[in-house]
Design a protein around this nucleic acid. Structure first.
Length: 103
DNA sequence: AGCGTGACGAACT
DNA sequence: TAGTTCGCCACGC
């Protein structure tokens, strides 16, 4: 089990209508290196297997370099799942942030 | 092999 | 409050 796989596992645990942040994932794996989390998602082409559109930055901002058609795809997918937005590129984290259980 | 960069973000100054 | 440094490492050059 490598870091990438763990990232994918956590992302798959995000329920519909929820989002999480790079920092949450990194912290859940015991590190502060959010860059690897982002890199893992971008390196993963399995858009159906791993809902990377549910992962945003700490500010709730959608990633600017999203691989599947830009942040608009994230916006469309998330909105269809019931996620609300502060503006076209910012998720309402106060309503939809998924916090990983601490163990 | 080293160096710079990067879907990031917290801590520090 | 804003700017800088540090964490940590895959990847391209």
């Amino acid at each position: 089990m490598n870091f990438f796989s763990q990232v994918y596992e956590l992302v798959r645990q995000i329920p519909e209508g929820k989002v999480t942040t790079y920092g949450e994932i990194a912290a859940a794996l015991g590190t502060r290196d959010a860059r690897r989390v982002g890199h893992a998602l971008h390196a993963n082409p399995d858009g159906d297997l791993t809902p990377c559109h549910r992962v945003v930055t700490k500010d709730g901002k959608l990633s600017e370099s999203y691989a599947f058609g830009g942040s608009f795809e994230q916006y469309a997918k998330l909105k269809s799942e019931g996620v609300t937005f502060l503006d076209r590129t910012h998720v309402d984290l106060s309503r939809h942030l998924y916090h990983y259980p601490t163990e």
